[in-house]
Nucleic acid binder design. Structure first.
Lengths: 100, 100
DNA sequence: AAAACATATGAATATGTATTTATATGTTTG
DNA sequence: CAAACATATAAATACATATTCATATGTTTT
């Protein structure tokens, strides 16, 4: 039996994850951190975003445990913390542009 | 080489898809139509939503080609039209609840 | 301990969007 | 062709949220 419909509660949980992935700025941050752990400053500079904006988005991603930060000296390096989401993002990026 | 970061344009496209998946009501509709093609009325009744609301959401999903409708007599049956998204949704539903 | 640095937080604002209510469109059956 | 039916659209509203600007927190150097 392949398609078992998730409960409303599980669906809500998933929707919350997708909602967070659904903002272009956040998604850019995630893809950038998918390649390697990145400091907040690096993210801001590389993606041409204000430090504040990056920090705000990271907070949301942290709150959903999509991302985790490790301090190294002065900087905090963020990386993706959910394997399924990481894999799914890589897969989606790989298949984008395919006409169904 | 596994992780190739998508272009900003592709990232925006993906974000738009995720944004649409990021609403609980829409996601419930999608999971319901993932099991089998469903008429608008069936969706509304089964998920306890107004016909108007269902129609509005279906319009957005149609606009992004995530869903496609086929008319059969009086009713229009909607089904998912993107294989990758369908597979990804099934996979996500399967792995939800796992503590990474 | 003070200064410098990197990151986080708060308030304000502007824009987006989900839902409802009312009505329209279009297909089908009598 | 008219009546009935299923779906779609429009306008209004209430709420969420992305971004900016200003400032705070906390860690690390000197």
């Amino acid at each position: 039996m392949r398609p078992a419909m998730p409960s409303d509660s599980d669906t809500a949980t998933l929707a919350e994850t997708f909602r967070l992935l659904g903002d272009p700025t956040r998604l850019r941050i995630l893809f950038f951190c998918l390649e390697a752990p990145r400091s907040v400053g690096d993210i801001a500079e590389s993606l041409q975003l204000s430090q504040s904006l990056v920090s705000h988005h990271l907070r949301l991603l942290r709150g959903a445990r999509l991302v985790r930060g490790n301090r190294l000296a002065k900087q905090i390096f963020y990386e993706l913390s959910d394997r399924h989401v990481s894999g799914m993002l890589a897969d989606m990026a790989h298949h984008v542009n395919e006409e169904n």
